[in-house]
């Protein structure tokens, strides 16, 4: 229950107009801070839904795959340059962002992650790593402004942000691959 309240507080804080305006004014903060935080808020709130509707999750998300698919779809959707732009200019898209990220990405991630096998988790992380590298290269190398509401330099910054994240994930994967935890635990 505590977790649900923390998540809800985070969600409300993020939804406050001054906070969301500030976070959305910088491209990389919009994508790499606000959006993940919304997912995190959903992740915390998810606990409540799990307790409230255990049936539902058990029946519809037995092996975690539908949930993780939904999570992935929502994440990819918000990586499209256009959606970022429209979240700024169109109320309805903005609203959809605040609903989809916590409830269609955060909640299913909460329910699915423990259900996935180690291999499944690694596949997911690898997939996101590749995607991040791709998005990073796209944003860094694109000579054109992909988002109308953000400047080219912000776009390049976002690209490097993606690449930084990808590097971190590669390090994590390497750590998982080369260090045998059984040696230590």
């Amino acid at each position: 229950m505590n977790q649900f309240i923390y998540g809800l507080i985070l969600f409300i804080v993020l939804a406050l107009p001054p906070v969301s305006n500030l976070l959305e004014s910088i491209m990389i903060v919009h994508m790499h801070m606000q959006m993940p935080l919304l997912v995190v808020a959903g992740f915390f709130m998810g606990h409540y839904f799990q307790l409230r509707f255990p049936e539902f999750f058990q029946r519809w998300n037995e092996n975690g795959i539908p949930g993780i698919l939904l999570f992935t779809i929502i994440m990819i959707y918000w990586m499209i340059p256009r959606t970022m732009d429209e979240a700024l200019t169109m109320q309805s898209v903005q609203l959809f962002k605040f609903i989809s990220l916590p409830f269609f990405a955060g909640v299913p991630l909460r329910d699915s992650w423990p259900k996935l096998s180690l291999r499944g988790k690694n596949i997911l992380i690898t997939g996101f790593t590749l995607m991040f590298i791709g998005m990073g290269l796209l944003y860094v190398l694109s000579p054109e402004q992909l988002c109308n509401n953000y400047l080219l330099v912000e776009q390049i910054t976002l690209g490097w942000g993606f690449i930084t994240m990808a590097i971190c994930m590669v390090i994590y994967l390497a750590y998982k691959t080369f260090i045998n935890e059984a040696d230590y635990e």
Partner: peptide, 12 residues
């Protein structure tokens, strides 16, 4: 390993 990755993310 995980702590270092989080640290790198924060640095990023």
């Amino acid at each position: 390993g995980m702590i270092i990755v989080i640290m790198l993310l924060v640095i990023g």
